[in-house]
Amino acid sequence: MNASDRALQEAAEWFALLRSGEASEADRSRWRAWLAASSENQAVWSRVEHLSSRLEPITSSPDRHLAVDAFTVARTRVLQRRRLLLGLAGLAGGGLLGWGTWKHSALPGLTLTWLASHRSGTGEIRQVALADGTQVWLASASAFDQDYQPGLRRLQLVAGEILVSTASDEREFVVDTPQGRLRALGTRFAVRLSDTGTSVAVYEGAVEVTTASRGETTVLQAGQQSRFTDRVTETPAAADPAREAWSRGILITRDTPLGEVAAELNRYRRGHISVATEIAQLPVFGSYPITDADRTLAMLETVMPIRVRRPLPWWLVIEAPPPAP
């Protein structure tokens, strides 16, 4: 066993002990000593935290016990199927003998509803090609429903942010949000939902905004962005072309306040990132991997007067470094 394998194994054992509910104070201090012993241990432990955070959607679900039951049923079936296959033909080629049977016993209604909507997980950026050739990129934790009718191509933004690049078609193309409707008069624009309204940035062509309750319309041209509520649309401002770089997994900053950078990283990560107020206005420059907050912050730590602390596995605190002794 090489050193690296040992670190992985030790980390797994520490994890199992610490979460068992039976760890004593002595265990915890031994764990802290283990963690402090090498940078490799720390690196491996950060992977443990990352992996366990991926179960967060289940952990935070009120139906988590049902989810676990379903999981066990599925695993058992997969195993039975594999045994059956081995018995019949061997697994060479991974034959899918049960496939046809499965398809007929599925529940088509619900499955279809799910297939109709598109969603991305936290930390995931997904590109979807729709039937008419329209491309949609989903930012982290985003979702939209697709509703294409004979005379209208309609998307309903349910959560988060999408970047749309429409394909030409005789039918109109619209995106609906709770605050209003966006009619695409051109090709490329981003729509983002927040608590306070809908933001739109137009990169190519133009978009007509119609607010939901007053029916006011405003046309945004390429290079403009704006925010609207169900009543009013703010005066358009210049759209920052760097903003759409998220669709390629890049966060581009140019004199961007640290607080805003942290908020953006937070969208791509389960957990919480907080910034001490005295450093929230520090300017950030450069391009960073938007889905990798840990790496981005490590990069920032080397060039900025900041320090990143982890009080809890999912909680990152960005603060000013302690004064030199």
Binding site: A67, W102, A106, L107, L110, T111, W114
Partner: peptide
């Protein structure tokens, strides 16, 4: 799909 089916049946 196997996981999906088990979850749909549970629901």
């Amino acid at each position: 799909r196997e996981v999906e089916q088990a979850w749909l049946q549970t629901l």
